[in-house]
Simulated assay, not measured.
Amino acid sequence: MVIDLNTAARPAFDLFSGFSLCATLASLETAGLLAELAATGRLAPDSHGLGAPLLDYLAARGIVEECGDRHRFTPLGDAIRADIGYLVWLSRGYGLPMRSIAEFVTGARGTDDHAGRDGSGVAVGSALVGARDLVPQALDLLDGTRVTRVLDLGCGNARFLLEICRRFGATGTGVDEDSRACAEAEREISAAGAAGTVSVRQLDAGDLAALPGIAATDLVVTFFLLHEILAAGRAALVDHLRGLARRLPAGAHLLIAEVTPATTEPGQLFSPEFTLVHALMGQRLLDAPGWHAVLADAGFTVAREVRPTMPGALLMLARRAG
């Protein structure tokens, strides 16, 4: 008997292989093994003899190909690696909540239960995504803006903070509540030789009273942070931003990156999944007019905005009024 596995007739197999590839590649990327494979053609270290089966699997799925006694990435593999941050963000960051979705639906888990979210996976995945689809446009958006001291709220691995400080000759402080993200940021700062100008603090970015040096800051960066404060309600978000505005010097800027909510249009990339996982966390998203209204109520005016290449994302540069 011949079984027809034509994926046009049996689309579940696309999801089957997609899930496996997503989890495998995200895990290897997080451990630095994809970079090792790209550089050496091998997976090392291989303490349990899994290198050969893994390479066979990746070859079967068209990610790598044999080249003598080594392997190299195919064009498909290179294209996926260019967007690997999305896989890390989803699989490593939100893999457990997504696998527990029925527990949220039935009430066995509450939307305030974030224990399953891997903050480090979210931070690393976001940084990888941003390097291609956000950072170049964000830096362009800042051109012509006075930047001498930066405060990055929810800084993750601090790569964007480092890039801003390098480009503008500024000093900066990153804040993140996740200890693993802060440890990664410390390593990035040390590797960049920037310990004298950039630092990181493990703090709750929502606690304005604890944040260092706001009164001397002329640029605050909040990438994918404010929707977490919005989870407590629009009034809570406005109060938070209003409190931030009161503490900042006149003319200071706020650089925001958020993803707008998914629509009913077919074929959308990323934003439906982003909207769903944040619904699991009890968080809702705002569209562009919603952000304009919140910022205006809090004492900021939007100076410039742009849609970056990150699907569904919005970049806004707002200025403190007064």
Rank of each mutant, 00 (worst) to 15 (best):
H114Q: 11
A170M: 00
T145G: 02
A216Y: 02
D178V: 04
A44R: 13
A12Y: 12
A59L: 08
Y86M: 02
L208W: 01
A262C: 04
T106V: 08
T148H: 02
L208E: 04
S271Q: 11
T40K: 07
S20W: 15
A123C: 01
Y86N: 04
F16S: 14
G130V: 08
D69A: 14
Y86T: 05
L139V: 10
P261Q: 05
L128M: 06
V124Y: 03
R70V: 09
H227M: 02
G312M: 00
D4H: 12
E66H: 08
I229K: 11
R187C: 14
G154D: 11
G290H: 01
A108P: 01
R70F: 11
F104A: 10
A293V: 03
A192M: 11
H292R: 14
A35N: 14
P212R: 02
L295R: 08
L87P: 04
S271L: 09
L142N: 00
G251D: 05
R180A: 15
L280C: 05
G107M: 10
C155M: 10
D56P: 02
C22S: 12
G233Q: 07
V129T: 12
L314A: 02
A31H: 13
F104T: 12
Q268K: 00
G196P: 13
A245W: 02
T40A: 10
V200D: 02
A298W: 03
L280N: 10
I229Y: 06
D46T: 00
A183V: 11
E273L: 15
P97L: 03
I101G: 06
E29M: 09
G107L: 06
L37N: 05
V220T: 09
E29R: 12
F274G: 07
A210E: 13
A250N: 03
M316F: 00
I214Y: 03
L54N: 08
V238Q: 01
R242A: 13
S91L: 09
L141M: 07
G119K: 03
G243S: 00
M1C: 15
Q137C: 11
D56W: 06
P311I: 05
T7Y: 13
D287N: 04
L96H: 08
V294I: 15
E36L: 09
L244R: 00
R167W: 00
I214N: 08
A231Q: 09
R247G: 02
T106K: 08
V124S: 07
R61N: 15
I229A: 06
E258W: 05
A79T: 07
G116I: 06
G251W: 00
L161T: 09
A303Q: 13
A195S: 15
A123E: 03
G267Y: 02
A303N: 10
I256T: 08
A257Y: 07
G85S: 05
G85Y: 06
L33H: 10
D140H: 14
T148S: 12
L230Y: 09
M1W: 12
A231W: 06
L230Q: 06
R247H: 01
L153M: 09
A35V: 13
G267V: 02
D287T: 01
P272Q: 08
L33C: 11
H278A: 02
T309L: 14
